[in-house]
Every structure is written in C-alpha cells, then in structure tokens.
C-alpha cells in the first residue's frame, strides 16, 4: 500500500500538491490523469522521495519514506520518470543490470542474473541486449527501461507518462505490458497517462487531479463521463459507447 496523508508541496508561493490524502495498491493498474500542471509528476516525485513534502506523510508498504533508508525503499518501489534522456551510452543489458543494484549493490549473484534474464525475456529484448540505448527506437528504449524496472523486482511501480513520444502501436504494446505486469506478476502499477482512452481501456482505477488536488477517484467506467472529464480538463469532452466501451472524443 502506498499511502499519502495530508501531503502538501509548495514551490515558492505556488502550492503544487495541496493537502492530498490517497491510497494506492489495491488495484493492479491505476491511471493518474489530469491537465498539465495538475501536480501529477510532483505527486510521483513525493512518493519517489525525489522531493520532500512540506507537510504530511508518505508511506510505501508501511515504510515512512523520510525515515527509511533509500536503499530499502528501492526494493519495494521503482519509479520511471518521463524524460529518460540518458546521455550515457549503455547497452540494454547494462541498463537492466543496474535495475538489480538495490539488491546486488554491484555484486551480481546467480539470483540477480536470473532476474535480469527474466526481465529481458519478458520484454522480448533478447535480440537487442548488446545494443546501445541510443541505437534503439523509442519503443524499444521504453521497453528497455521497463525491463530495468522489472529487474528491480519491486511490488510498486510508478510510470510517469510511459507513452510519451510513442506511436500508436508502441503505445498499445506498452499498455498491454503494463497490464500483464499487474495480472501475471502481481505488480501494483500507477501510471500517469494523458490519453484518457488508454487510461479507460487498460486501468482498473482512474485518479484525476487538478490544481494540486484529487478531484475524482473511481473505477475507469465511472470517470469516463462527459461531466467528469469536462470538470477535470476544463474543456468539452464527448463520451460515446463503442462496442460496449466508453470512448472519449476530444479532438475538437
């Protein structure tokens, strides 16, 4: 369980996360949606101990993140940020190997190697394992990063906009993968998504943020309503039922 209790974060005079209390971890996949500047990424940074809250408490699996050693937290929580412009020329294998760092501290055991092989296999990265990241396509690179997170072998996985800069096919691939991670491996994935249709299709629960606060939190189907989406995004959104699935139309 990831729990935030009355968490507030300010940057100067601006409050980016405003007294938020929420729990994650019951559902397999939770989508975090909301307009730009709603505080989604800051919320992730708070949980991922990248920024300290000005008020409130964050716990991951019962561990208070301000008191627990970072190395311990790294075994239960993995965070993948949105802009992984890793300049370093690392191979896919190197990257996945670094995912084991919280467990191995640099000395790989047999078990570590098994995790690495499994993660590479799970993401079909075998043929690319000796490629440098800067030689991969966007979709392949994103899969390499997810493989690293898998190798980290944590129960909780936070993905910040994993679909950024991907084309349709790769977006679907990544979401299918996220679903499998939750269903087959028992991970609890929380992911920031901008496309509400992807959120509705692949997640169990949608949390909507706006102006630093959680404004809606419900199973996907209940969020996919014109009035709810209009309130979240401050723009008209039409929702139609197609083949029994709600589809938001917001292309103008």
């Amino acid at each position: 369980m990831i729990a935030l209790e009355n968490v507030t974060k300010r940057y100067g005079a601006q409050t980016v996360v405003d007294d938020v209390s929420i729990r994650f971890g019951q559902e397999g996949v939770t989508a975090l949606i909301g307009p730009n500047g709603a505080g989604k990424t800051t919320l992730f940074s708070l949980v991922g101990r990248l920024v300290r809250p000005d008020a409130g408490r964050v716990t991951v699996g019962g561990l208070d993140i301000t008191r627990t050693p970072s190395a311990e937290l790294a075994k239960v929580l993995a965070v993948l940020r949105q802009d992984n412009h890793v300049a370093a020329r690392l191979t896919v294998h190197d990257l996945v190997e670094f995912g084991r760092f919280p467990h191995s501290r640099g000395r790989l055991t047999v078990e570590d190697r098994e995790h690495i092989e499994r993660a590479i296999g799970y993401l079909d990265l075998g043929p690319f394992r000796h490629r440098f990241l800067d030689e991969l396509s966007g979709g392949q690179r994103q899969r390499a990063f997810i493989a690293m997170v898998l190798a980290q072998d944590t129960k909780y996985v936070l993905l910040d906009e994993p679909l950024n800069n991907l084309d349709l096919r790769h977006m679907t691939e990544i979401m299918r993968l996220v679903r499998r991670m939750a269903d087959e491996l028992g991970k609890r994935v929380i992911t920031v998504l901008h496309d509400v249709n992807f959120a509705a299709t692949w997640s169990d629960r949608i949390v909507a943020m706006r102006d630093g606060a959680v404004v809606a939190d419900a199973p996907a189907r209940e969020i996919m309503r014109p009035e709810v989406l209009a309130a979240v995004y401050d723009t008209d959104v039409d929702v139609r039922e197609i083949d029994g699935r709600p589809v938001a139309l917001y292309y103008g």
Partner: peptide
C-alpha cells in the same frame, strides 16, 4: 565504485530510484 558512477551518470533521479546516496 564503478557501478555507482555509472548510475550517477544516468542522473540524480535514477540514482535515487535505485537507492543510491
């Protein structure tokens, strides 16, 4: 300390995620 420098080379956020000081 080679591995630690590799991880640092991927950025502070990356390093923190992997539990590195």
């Amino acid at each position: 300390a080679a591995d630690r420098f590799s991880v640092i080379g991927m950025g502070e956020e990356f390093a923190t995620n992997l539990g590195l000081d």
